[in-house]
Design a protein around this nucleic acid. Structure first.
Lengths: 223, 223
DNA sequence: CAATGAATGAGACTAAGTGTCATGCGGCAT
DNA sequence: ATGCCGCATGACACTTAGTCTCATTCATTG
């Protein structure tokens, strides 16, 4: 049973909420949970880790999800994966918000969270650059794309944690659509070409082009 | 004089290089530097901080650079700022590579580096979203842009640290050009126009266009 | 019932980081 | 020169995170 883990984690959040993070020692948590210091450190490697209980498991799930996705999936697989992460946190509900309260307050915990975000980003980058060709441009692009996906996730999650957002599903779709729009695979992009008969004045061409692009822009901004 | 700081930092790198990071205690560093443990912790707040001596100063310099940039500078100011950071590390030379050896090996130091990268990203995001309008789309865009700039920096720096790159100047320009291409403000974007005399076969036009675009702006065409 | 092995508890130990107090050293005014 | 003051350093004690070792307990299995 992993009930011991949950017991300890609950005790930790309880005490952190009352006394604050810095002023509760691991001994406090252990005795509150009714276990020994030893079992605390066996269950969670550190005091910080007790805040993020199922992180490794989630990361492993995401990796599995990406590993099993077809090699032509590209960005779509990664955006799917990041949605899994977001909804995991949303499903936690108030517990996630308690954690946010702590990570907002305690620098060490904020850093820890940042680090785990970077783990996802690294994973995404690896898969994206694995799917693409091996050119330096493609690798930079993969890195930027991974960063953008994580940024989109972070943004929506933060808004949800702050109750600034009631429909995370819709917002993450919108945000990831923006990512898709700016990072969709080049193979989908076509080269625009404009053929102009000789004698047509440049001003007329410019007007026509602007009008044409205006339509495109409007269509793109709509989801 | 901040000579004491340099003395301590040098001693630390020396010992880390010989005995490794985990196995050298702060006492070792202090006695190697000929100071007391107290002065060590007064100079650097922690054992990790001794690896990144002038981080705060650099961050402050960047912030100053951004603060004093005109409000219409936008992305250009941020890319300038990140170039300052890159060249700062490049100017460190071998010391930067020693640090890379440590951050590649010791997880705690890698995390620390990650955190400071995030500090830059946060700074960039703040300025980018301050310059843009306050719409949610603009804020997401600012977040993605900041992430992309940092990703570009990280990529070039890492390549330089690994000696995979002999001309960081050129590579950062290229990488940031890619960022500009995908994130440049629409107001700065110019409309490309191609005027073709009647009678020229489309295949010839396509060939010429592809040749012209080769290596340059492969990406902005779908916006 | 006996043996084994995994989980737990107890406790010692190292080292990071904090705080306090004393000391010493250079500048400065009288 | 003398006494004073501010500041950097050193010495030292203390808390706490994290590691390691060993003993104990308890459940499972032969």
């Amino acid at each position: 049973m992993a009930a011991a883990r949950d017991e300890i984690s609950d005790a930790a959040f309880r005490l952190f909420g009352i006394q604050g993070y810095a002023t509760t020692s691991v001994d406090d948590i252990a005795s509150e949970a009714g276990v020994s210091r030893s079992t605390f450190f066996r269950s969670f490697g550190s005091k910080e880790a007790v805040i993020f209980p199922d992180h490794d498991e989630l990361l492993a799930r995401i990796e599995e999800r990406l590993r099993s996705s077809p090699s032509d999936a590209g960005l779509a697989a990664v955006t799917d994966a990041v949605k899994i992460v977001l909804f995991h946190y949303v499903a936690e509900g108030e517990r996630a918000r308690e954690r946010y309260g702590l990570t907002s307050t305690v620098p060490a915990l904020r850093e820890r969270e940042l680090v785990s975000g970077a783990r996802y980003q690294r994973l995404f980058r690896r898969y994206l650059s694995h799917w693409a060709d091996a050119s330096p441009e493609a690798e930079l692009r993969a890195e930027m794309t991974a960063a953008a996906v994580v940024a989109a996730h972070n943004r929506v999650l933060r808004r949800w944690l702050r109750r600034e957002c009631t429909d995370p599903q819709r917002e993450i779709e919108q945000a990831l659509a923006a990512v898709h729009r700016t990072f969709a695979d080049e193979s989908e992009a076509s080269i625009g070409m404009l053929v102009v008969p000789a004698g047509v004045p440049a001003s007329a061409v410019e007007k026509a082009v602007k009008r044409a692009l205006e339509g495109v822009a409007v269509r793109n901004l709509d989801q």
